[in-house]
Amino acid sequence: MLAFCRWLEATPWSIALHESLWAYAIIESAHVLSLCVFVGIAVLWDFRLLRLTLRDVPVSEFLARLMPWMVAGFVVMVVTGALLFFGIPVRSYQSVFFRAKVVMLILAGVNAWVFHATVGRRVVEWDSAPILPRAARVAGVVSLCLWAAVIFSGRMIAYNWFDCDTPQSDLVRTLAGCTDDLRE
């Protein structure tokens, strides 16, 4: 994987991106601002599952009307995020925060999948119910925590406290996958 990241970093497009004058900054801004679309609506969705807001809106209506926007926001986040990784592959791959973020993203995905595969399938049964099924509420809380954690770890990637190019403890070196060959 590290070898792949090093190969990626040497490709002309990756070089163009990390040496770029504007592209990198614009992609990063798009990545951050699309938080509002994807996480913003996802948070309201979780709040709806907890009946904290929009109680008059049936869950299925919320999903039908806003899912396309969430998907659109998510696609922008993934594409811009992938581009940011493509621009700086090695350092990202060896960043403990990046690794934590990927784990959280996978967990958030699993949580969403579990919801839609189980309690979400029977949404017509509790669409406007005064008390939502426990599983739905749990999914809401878990989702809120995970997306907040994704934002935190994402923000921390910019900071280089735990980078492999400075002396680190064995624990950090293991977590970050630091190697001894300083190829560069």
């Binding site: 938080l35 509002c36 913003g40 609506i41 996802a42 809106v57 209506e61 919320f62 934002i151 923000r155």
Partner: peptide, 25 residues
């Protein structure tokens, strides 16, 4: 940033509605 996401969501929901999008019913 987390607050920005929430702020963005609440603003979007209402503004999208004003534009006839999202929860337009």
């Amino acid at each position: 940033l987390v607050a920005m996401a929430v702020l963005g969501g609440t603003v979007l929901l209402v503004d999208m509605r004003l534009l006839g999008l999202g929860l337009s019913r």
